[in-house]
Design a binder for these strands. Structure first.
Lengths: 194, 194
DNA sequence: AAATCTGTGCAATTTAAACTTTACAAAGTA
DNA sequence: TACTTTGTAAAGTTTAAATTGCACAGATTT
């Protein structure tokens, strides 16, 4: 078949990279964030150095405002950060370059929030139950007693579950997970041995 | 203060249960599914026995069609199943009653899908690269060679990452995770010892 | 066979999320 | 001081997701 010119080759390579970025964007939705988060992650990652809002807007064809919104979100998710570049007035953003670390950051951000919300609800309900219990008398219907008891058990199970999630988060965040599920880099020839 | 009648107490208990259901619905969004999935999960869970589309529609105030859609989704996510009830023509749906198991099912469903998609993309790109490599000649620009090399490395990292996720999924699905992050039920008095 | 019930495909509608436009404050520059 | 540049707040628009209403097929009952 026809050969490729240098420029054509470059373009082909770029289109491979774009496929990767697209996939990152897709996959990121699994974390419950907009695919644009993943897209920016991919773009900055592939770019191999920090980027400005303008260059991101340029690359995605989206508005600078949106870039600002997304980068802020990414920072709050702990998967990006501003990087000071001397001589430039613009903010430069860089991303976590370790995939697994990104996974952990997102996992942690999401579930910590859930645990927090749950803990406060649990406290509230325990209090409410204690309050309601004071109104239980001998002539309270059997139904009420049973339901109350069940609610208690329910809360106990919840507590166990959210404690588990909390421990799970710690298990990831501390990196202990890697002791049991290690990352094995593939055995491609010329593979870099960090 | 004023005392509570039996009915009032029941209502108060119900409203506690509703708060729990609401929270389940909220939390479920962390798995990237609609909160209605969580709401139905919560409702059926609290109901303590299988429910029909009609009773669900009744409970949520939503259309039966939507109930059907959501239940199907839940079944495909492995967190609900139809249950045969003799004497009834309606389908009855029940849900996984173990919180942690639900977590694992959702985690597994989501990430298995991601791994699968990625694997097929990786294969495609490896092939494309092998193809492009045949066009590399001595007069190919240095830039092209570097980019090509980088792309290779990129794919190696991807491969390592998705293998990790795949192992992670197995780690959860097999229940091995519980050996390292156990579920500890809280020490409430009268706590049931399964 | 006619009548009813049940679940779901499909198009239409509503609601929520993503994204843009405009405007402006803060900080830098001339 | 007046003029740019940069990031983002706020409100508006577009796009996508959630939800409904209608219709109908398949199964069940009368």
């Amino acid at each position: 078949m026809a050969s490729f010119s240098n420029d054509q080759l470059l373009q082909e390579i770029k289109s491979c990279e774009d496929l990767l970025t697209d996939r990152i964007a897709d996959n990121m939705e699994t974390f419950g964030v907009s695919s644009t988060v993943g897209r920016l992650l991919g773009i900055i990652y592939m770019n191999r150095e920090a980027m400005t809002l303008d260059s991101l807007a340029d690359e995605t064809g989206m508005s600078k405002t949106r870039m600002s919104q997304v980068m802020r979100q990414m920072i709050s998710l702990n998967i990006a950060e501003k990087e000071y570049v001397k001589g430039s007035r613009k903010d430069h953003y860089n991303v976590e370059r370790d995939y697994a670390q990104t996974f952990i950051s997102l996992f942690t951000s999401n579930w910590s929030e859930v645990v927090k919300r749950n803990t406060s609800l649990e406290r509230r309900l325990r209090e409410q139950i204690r309050h309601l219990e004071t109104f239980l008398t001998e002539d309270s219907s059997e139904d009420v007693k049973v339901r109350m008891e069940r609610l208690q058990q329910e809360l106990d199970e919840w507590n166990a579950y959210y404690n588990w999630i909390d421990n799970l988060v710690a298990f990831f965040e501390s990196g202990e997970i890697f002791n049991h599920v290690p990352i094995v880099s593939s055995e491609q020839e010329g593979g870099s041995t960090k």
